[in-house]
Design a protein around this nucleic acid. Structure first.
Lengths: 173, 173
DNA sequence: CACAGCATTCACAACATTGTGAAGTTAAGG
DNA sequence: CCTTAACTTCACAATGTTGTGAATGCTGTG
């Protein structure tokens, strides 16, 4: 058995920044993305605002805004630290599942919005009406598919967990 | 039978701007979104850059950048106008299908990026490793699901078209 | 082959975004 | 009840983004 590779702190930092920037390009708040990735890559169960501020070398207000954003998306939970005035922040176990659901809600918004467009175009047949109806239907379709997709993801994750546990059990024996 | 509702130009304009802004919030280039929606809601098969510039009250360079963006995503096609030096731009029929595929590619990028994170964390078991692996698997999963989802959309659209044609045929008879 | 008509590129200016420092607010502990 | 430690709000400054006008390049046509 080869010796296990160790955590490469510099590479982890690069990954955090790279992934955060890719998220940001997608409309995700930049600082929130950096906070999210920092939390994802740290072994601590929960981090305080001060921890995050230090690791990212930014000021507390920046953290304040970022965690509010993340909490609104349901990705992060706030917990008071017993015996201290600090709050700590913890990633929800099902963070990706939840955030995907939230993001999926955008398709509903888009579908509703597009329905306004359908109405604005009148009932007379026209190429524009065809296109906008198609657009609306597409958004509705994707929204409807989202539920099934997330359910399959959860199932797939559960299967993997079961398999891994079985492997571990064999190893233990 | 009630008289058919007519196209409400003002409402259409509002829809264009609303939808464009929603797209923009999602990382879509603002002007590109306005161009896309304008094309979607116009009855003409194709529009020239000048048409677009006039309808949106912006300068030609803005259109230039926007259509390049849209062409890169495979949403729009450029066609020379016969008998003129102008180019015209046309929405692809399968615009939503194609663009969704392109956007789906982001999940591949994210999965690859996250795989770097997995490597950076080393092979020693740790909470961080679990989380980042989970993240990578999620992106992979969504990417893999995308194909099936788009196939189902295409099928659903085809079914609808068939049904509509049947309805029309009955009406015609 | 020169000109006319578009599209594009470039530098810039207006605008929006985002993180900082300082002041304000809340709550725990002496 | 006052002090202190944390989080938050606010105004501002730095920065990045985005569309404009002027200049440039390209292409078809007479």
């Amino acid at each position: 058995m080869s010796k296990p590779a160790e955590r490469d702190e510099q590479a982890v930092g690069q990954f955090v920044e790279n992934a955060a920037m890719t998220f940001a390009e997608w409309g995700f708040s930049r600082m929130a993305a950096r906070v999210l990735l920092t939390m994802t890559t740290s072994d601590e169960e929960a981090l305080t605002a001060a921890d995050l501020a230090e690791r990212l070398a930014v000021s507390p207000p920046a953290i304040s805004g970022a965690v509010r954003y993340l909490m609104q998306l349901g990705i992060v939970e706030r917990r008071p630290v017993p015996g201290s005035r600090r709050d700590s922040y913890r990633l929800r176990d099902d963070a990706w599942y939840v955030s995907a659901g939230t993001i999926g809600g955008v398709y509903q918004t888009l579908a509703d919005l597009t329905d306004d467009g359908v109405r604005a175009l009148g009932s007379e047949p026209s190429p524009a009406l065809d296109r906008v109806r198609d657009m609306r239907d597409f958004f509705r379709f994707v929204h409807d598919e989202m539920d099934g997709l997330l359910e399959r993801w959860r199932q797939s994750k559960k299967d993997r967990a079961t398999r891994d546990r079985a492997t571990k059990d064999r190893t233990d024996s």
